[in-house]
Design a protein around this nucleic acid. Structure first.
Lengths: 216, 216
DNA sequence: TAGATTGTTAATCGATTAACAATC
DNA sequence: TAGATTGTTAATCGATTAACAATC
């Protein structure tokens, strides 16, 4: 029992990476009408161990009850809170090509509290186009835009060769998070988080496993 | 010295995940005209340890030389081979929405040996549209298409609720790899590799780090 | 040759799993 | 109450780092 504190010892990246998946399965459980779940039940659906689930959760507090398990909605809300999803995040899309548009148009992010507030590009053929309530403007206007608007995250959906230059601009603004789809590994200054989505890396890992016949 | 074998002891996922990044940095080194690199130099640019690089590589063979280091091109080619990138992979895109189109139009995959051979959807407004040399056809034709064409990988760029149904179709074909962008966790049968790209998970991890002020 | 750097073995560190007292 | 299940501590397992003999 005990320990309702949090935030002192630092949590390992391995734990954090599992949280969204817990969150997803709990969301499904809510949809299915379940009200309670034990770590054992959850571990069986998620194909992991009950120990790991309890160990992971215990990093953040005591959310369960002996002999009962966890209340599904409560646990869902707790994880939502842990992940920082109780607030809204504004996101600017840098690079309004196919990928930038795909992110913009995917409704799933909005449901989680991420909304898009701007799109920027250097390609004249896309500048001026409107998606939803956002019009693509020239990259030159980015700096000014970020000065006048409160933007939390920049999604970099631009080619690698442009990424370094653009990140220089961003580093001078109030942006605190970069969601980086470009190939480049950015070295961000103190205080800026970079989350990389390297799609090609992911394909190469698949290719390795295909070659080796690893199923996993 | 010794040990030019491979493929007996199994390699940990942690090692595999780092290979594409090595590959990327070696590619940059080639572009910069470098001919040799030591694990120490490489570790400094990549912000890791020389020990880890040597340990990782030693899983696959002896690619370096004492007192010299590694030949950049040779090591690049070795990793290319390890990752299974010496062959071409055909990819079918299931779900021809924004994300599917984005993948199709991104030239970077082609450079690595992945080429797209088909696009499928159920939305009449996109069926019949042509991208490059591929025309979107109805999902009903997928099964037949996969029977008549040699397709290695299916990219699932469809909503979660459709993913299970579509994956059932795929599981009955010769497809060996699934590149899954849908929210769903698929439980694939023996012999089929699934590589998940959960974009929302990645955003949530960023959100966690923003909340906690973790830079990493 | 002497300096540099590998591949590998040993030591350390961290993460996962197992076990169990506490208690609903 | 008796059975179930938690949070936590201890044991195990695996991954990373350090050290070093071998040798280019």
């Amino acid at each position: 029992m005990a320990n309702v504190n949090s935030g002192d010892k630092k949590i390992s990246a391995a734990v954090i990476k599992r949280l969204p998946r817990y969150y997803r399965y709990l969301s499904d459980l809510i949809d299915s009408g379940a009200t309670r779940v034990s770590s054992k039940e959850l571990s069986e659906t998620m194909n992991t161990t009950a120990s790991q689930i309890r160990q992971d959760l215990s990093n953040f507090g005591c959310f369960g009850q002996q002999g009962y398990g966890y209340n599904v909605v409560t646990l869902y809300e707790e994880i939502k809170n842990i992940l920082g999803l109780k607030k809204l995040y504004s996101v600017a899309i840098i690079g309004a090509g196919n990928l930038g548009q795909a992110l913009f148009n995917y409704s799933g992010f909005g449901k989680r509290g991420f909304y898009f507030v701007g799109m920027f590009d250097i390609d004249e053929s896309v500048i001026g186009k409107t998606f939803g309530n956002v019009t693509v403007t020239h990259l030159d206007t980015l700096s000014e835009f970020l000065k006048n608007n409160d933007v939390d995250i920049a999604a970099l959906t631009i080619p690698s060769h442009a990424a370094t230059e653009v990140s220089e601009i961003i580093f001078k603004t109030n942006i605190k998070g970069i969601w980086n789809f470009s190939h480049a590994d950015l070295d961000a200054p103190e205080g800026i988080c970079v989350e990389n989505v390297h799609l090609t890396d992911s394909l190469m890992i698949l290719s390795y496993r295909l070659k080796e016949g690893i199923v996993l």
